[in-house]
């Protein structure tokens, strides 16, 4: 599989009156063509900040991207003659180095973004039709009439009933699920290569959530897109992702194919997180494994493993260095000093 996005060592900090918030401390991951990458983590772990950094959506100040690269390889497809050559020959675009007009071409055009709260992401005083049409005119240079036809097509495509009539509705006239469908129509209108969905179903009910997940999965296949799905729900990720990145305190602690992550987790945090979930269909109520303590304060993150406070495998060396990502099996990375070389199963946690 071919890489479409490669994020290397991304560091983002917020300069606030209280001090420097180390929101991201070295985030690296790859996104391959046609895959769904799930990003899970608790609130404050840096899931959203990562994506917003890539697309220059963070207000600056206070945010500052201090280091890192985000290489976008998507344009290789547009030039058929370069298709056979290795990645190095197609000049990737570093999203972080783009200027304002450069990133505008990517945002909405090449990379679509679905936000969590559709009501505040959509413009309340603009009809649905105009909002979607605007992107088409801006990115694809369509005429107003072309944009209208295409918008109605898009609305129908994402399953909004009576698209002709809905074209001139306002966001408040839609239900939560329909608004999220509109957001999706907006994100995919320009045939993007990547869709970034930032907790798109968190505010929705489970039955609507199932519909939205189904829709995104279908669109992904039909339009041959890559999807980054940010969520805190490990259940959602299990069903739809190909690979999963688990984030904790501003850095990925584990990156693994989905089955590997759930059945053979490599980082103590992931193990505990999976244990903290109630099991559907369990015979009797077993006690949930809880993770004691709270995530570290990112105003003054410790200069050692961020999880050491809460980890039950903690060893002396964990208090001295920040662990780097190690490949523990093919395609499975974990940032932990725990010795994965011996294949003995990790003892049950206290």
């Amino acid at each position: 599989m071919r890489k479409i996005l490669e994020v290397k060592d991304l560091v983002t900090r917020f300069y606030t009156f209280d001090g420097v918030v180390h929101a991201l401390s070295g985030v690296s991951f790859d996104l391959y063509k046609g895959e769904t990458l799930g990003i899970v983590g608790e609130s404050g772990s840096g899931k959203s900040v990562t994506m917003m950094s890539l697309l220059h959506l963070l207000p600056s100040p206070p945010a500052k991207i201090e280091n890192g690269q985000a290489l976008y390889y998507g344009d290789a497809d547009d030039k058929p003659d370069t298709n056979n050559k290795p990645d190095a020959d197609n000049k990737p675009i570093d999203l972080l180095k783009l200027n304002k007009s450069g990133i505008r071409k990517i945002r909405g055009g090449k990379i679509g973004f679905i936000f969590q709260d559709a009501l505040s992401a959509l413009n309340p005083v603009m009809t649905i039709g105009r909002q979607i049409g605007e992107t088409l005119i801006e990115h694809l240079g369509m005429s107003v009439q072309q944009a209208k036809t295409r918008t109605i097509e898009m609305l129908e495509y994402v399953g909004i009933p009576e698209p002709q009539r809905r074209f001139s509705s306002y966001p408040h006239q839609f239900s939560g699920g329909m608004r999220q469908r509109t957001m999706i129509a907006l994100a995919i209108a320009c045939n993007p290569k990547i869709i970034i969905a930032d907790e798109p179903t968190t505010a929705l009910d489970v039955t609507v959530q199932a519909q939205i997940i189904e829709l995104v999965q279908r669109l992904k296949k039909e339009m041959n897109m890559s999807v980054i799905w940010i969520t805190h729900d490990l259940g959602v990720v299990a069903g739809m992702a190909d690979r999963v990145v688990v984030m904790y305190a501003g850095a990925p602690v584990e990156i693994a194919p989905v089955d590997e992550l759930y059945y053979n987790p490599g980082h103590p945090y992931t193990i505990k997180l999976l244990g903290a979930l109630p099991k559907i269909g369990e015979k009797e109520s077993l006690r949930l494994e809880s993770i004691d303590g709270t995530p570290p304060d990112l105003l003054s993150p410790p200069a050692h493993c961020q999880f050491a406070w809460r980890c039950s495998h903690v060893q002396e060396k964990c208090w001295k260095i920040v662990p780097e990502q190690k490949e523990i099996s093919s395609g499975h990375y974990a940032a932990c000093l725990f010795d994965f070389a011996d294949k003995t199963p990790i003892p049950p946690l206290m």
Binding site: T207, D259, Y262
Partner: peptide, 9 residues
């Protein structure tokens, strides 16, 4: 049927 289960298989 709509509850997501944290178990890929």
């Amino acid at each position: 049927s709509a509850i997501p289960i944290p178990d890929p298989v």
